Simulated scan of single mutants.
Amino acid sequence: MSRPDVHHGRGAPENRTPTRFNLPVREADGDWLDAREDLDEAPPPLRTTVTVERPKTIIARNVSPDVGFDRSINPYRGCEHGCIYCFARPTHAFHDLSPGLDFESKLFAKPDAAALLRAELSKRGYVPRPMALGTNTDPYQPIEARWKITRSILEVLAETRHPLTITTKSDRVTRDIDILAPMAAEGLACVAVSVTSLTPAISRTLEPRAPAARKRLAAVKMLREAGIPAYVAIAPVVPGITDHEVEHILEAAAQAGAIGAFYIPVRLPHEVAPLFRAWLDEHFPDRADKVMNIIRALRGGRDNDPDFFTRMRGSGPWADLIATRFKIASAKHGFTREKISLRTDLFVPPQGAQLRLF
């Protein structure tokens, strides 16, 4: 039976307090609203809030040897898409917020991102390499429609002819085709659209506030028609839940005109593992143990494998099976493992207001 405290339309089935950093457990303040859940059969609607964040820098540096970029930008902290498997959920614990419901409802926006980016690109000795957007939380999650922070970042990158990559689960990326198409024509931009499942009933619980797969595939088609290199990312593959769809997703990707595809098995770091278990118990109780057993088989007997390289592909027979199926289906649709190379030689540092007059 469904738990009475579950917020329908949200991903995480609970909001457990983070404990990794010995942060204090939040206590009720005595207000009558604290007892509301005890009085009602269902919890009150969970509202999304956005807090302005004022960081001093906006470019995050990465030195992981198994990641194909060394710098990225995250316009937002937290993500309203609510994907239960999101490996970024634990970052909310840094702020004494839960990686559960807090992660998808208590969001942070960085409205100074474009100005900070301009300042960092202006520094003497800056060497351009592809800037990755969407590596942690989605740059086109619903609040982007109002805040437009991602678009402001793209405007700076376009002005400076700086290469960029975008990963998203939203068809909202097509809103910025007017910026991305001219950049792509110069070899400066490519987009990866994540498609996890083609089954609406699965998507509604797995990633409840992300656009439907048909909308994402339509976005891939629009991007390609505009001349923008677009990939489909099957990220993640959830064994026992979505792995049977790998071939179907690749077929749909080919029909949409994608130039390639890649996949990543589900990762369950830190607080994501117990949240995912609770989600399985809520939505797939008939196969919860089976799914976790397969995941552990993929991850060397653990819920999660944090080691470089194997964390992105898994290991063992199950990992080999997924890899083989993906390889065969990719070849069938003409997808190769060749990655697009973006240009860095066109970069022009930002100019001051006075110089832009000439």
Rank of each mutant, 00 (worst) to 15 (best):
G187T: 09
G187S: 11
G187M: 09
L188W: 02
L188D: 06
A189C: 13
C190K: 14
C190Y: 11
V193P: 01
V193S: 01
S194T: 15
S194G: 09
S194E: 07
S194Y: 03
S194F: 02
V195Y: 02
S197H: 05
S197E: 02
L198Y: 01
P200S: 00
P200M: 00
P200C: 00
A201K: 13
A201S: 15
I202A: 06
I202Y: 09
S203H: 14
R204I: 08
T205Y: 11
L206A: 03
E207Y: 02
P208E: 07
P208L: 05
P208W: 03
A210C: 04
A210S: 11
P211N: 02
A212W: 11
A212M: 13
A213E: 08
K215G: 05
R216M: 01
R216Q: 03
R216W: 00
R216D: 00
L217K: 04
A219I: 07
A219E: 09
A219Y: 06
K221D: 15
K221F: 09
M222A: 15
L223W: 05
L223Q: 05
E225N: 13
I228S: 08
I228G: 06
A230G: 10
A230L: 07
A230R: 03
Y231M: 09
Y231T: 05
V232P: 00
V232K: 02
A233T: 12
I234G: 02
I234M: 10
V237L: 03
V238D: 01
P239T: 08
G240T: 03
G240P: 03
G240W: 02
I241Q: 05
H244F: 12
E245K: 09
E247M: 09
H248S: 15
H248C: 11
I249M: 07
L250D: 05
L250P: 06
A252E: 14
A252G: 11
A253S: 12
A253E: 04
A253F: 02
Q255E: 15
Q255V: 12
G257I: 03
A258S: 10
I259E: 14
G260Y: 09
G260N: 15
